[in-house]
Design a protein around this nucleic acid. Structure first.
Lengths: 168, 168
DNA sequence: AGCTAGTTGTTAGGACGCTAACTAAATGAG
DNA sequence: CTCATTTAGTTAGCGTCCTAACAACTAGCT
């Protein structure tokens, strides 16, 4: 993906344009990805696959044994065709099952297998520690502030997307 | 890539784990991408392709008429094989040229075509305005603060990547 | 009941990123 | 000079995401 525009480029010491926060987000995201990828690779899965497993696991803990593809799509913020492929690979790895729903013959119910559940628990056992490592560059107050600003920005972006089909 | 883990999930008002800033970064990034993609699509290019064109244009303005593939790879923070594909498509679209270097027969010099240069200038004419729109959700001070925190975090992540081959 | 309209998921095809493995050329040590 | 090593770029193959188009099914209106 990479919306990357250019690297640090000293900028000759001139006008720090409003574009800086923007670029920094993109670069930081790339790094977070690079740091997290090997973390999950140790368990034989990708970050995206973890998203699916984690959501199924959470649902289970709320007493919901399986989720529909559309439901997963909404939770993961990706389109249904992407979920299809993701679930294909997880199914092939025997980590999830995909069964037709009895009440709605179009829908598919995706659920964890025993192996899938075990994997999630193994990952969770070290996950929080790892996320903390990733975030220790900021103290708790900075983390809260960063979170606050990102939420603020995100709300604004959501407004942009909802409002404009494609206004300049 | 979507490191997506799950959506807002009210969290029942309980322990706001340190993971929040983390998740918010991922979600905000996804939105930035969704907002920027159509912006570039209007010009028939993708955000990644813009990265190439913009860097070539910047180089030209510094008196450097072309960049090598490796140089592009470093500036864009992506691996050489990805640059190959990117340049392939830009070449097919007649926006850049790829010529062998006379001094080093292995190297390829990538440069803007006339059409590529025109396109960059057309994009630049509206680009800053668009970036500003994207960022108006935050006032200037908030933008600076967000930038500061992201840089802080990024430095930390870079340390993690340099230091550990794969420590837990 | 019957027909239209909307939903659910899939397939097809494209772009982007990665690693691993390879070719061709430059470099450098003996 | 020659041979081993390093560097530049490409190819092959995988995983992720997207849009467009489609099949199958549901639902709602008459």
């Amino acid at each position: 993906m990479s919306l990357t525009d250019s690297p640090a480029r000293p900028n000759g010491g001139a006008r720090p344009t409003t574009e800086n926060a923007f670029r920094e987000l993109i670069r930081t995201f790339g790094l977070v990805e690079r740091v997290m990828h090997p973390h999950f690779a140790r368990f034989g899965i990708t970050p995206s696959q973890w998203g699916v497993l984690r959501n199924l696991h959470r649902a289970e803990q709320e007493g919901i044994p399986s989720l529909r593809l559309t439901e997963l799509s909404e939770r993961l913020l990706i389109r249904p065709p992407s979920v299809t492929g993701l679930v294909d690979r997880l199914e092939r790895a025997r980590l999830v099952t995909r069964d037709g729903s009895p009440t709605d013959l179009r829908a598919k119910q995706v659920g964890l297998t025993k192996a899938g559940r075990r994997l999630v628990e193994r990952v969770l056992a070290v996950h929080e520690g790892h996320v903390n490592t990733v975030l220790t560059g900021l103290n708790p107050e900075e983390q809260r502030e960063l979170h606050r600003l990102l939420v603020l920005w995100r709300k604004h972006l959501e407004g942009l997307l909802d409002g404009t089909a494609d206004a300049v």
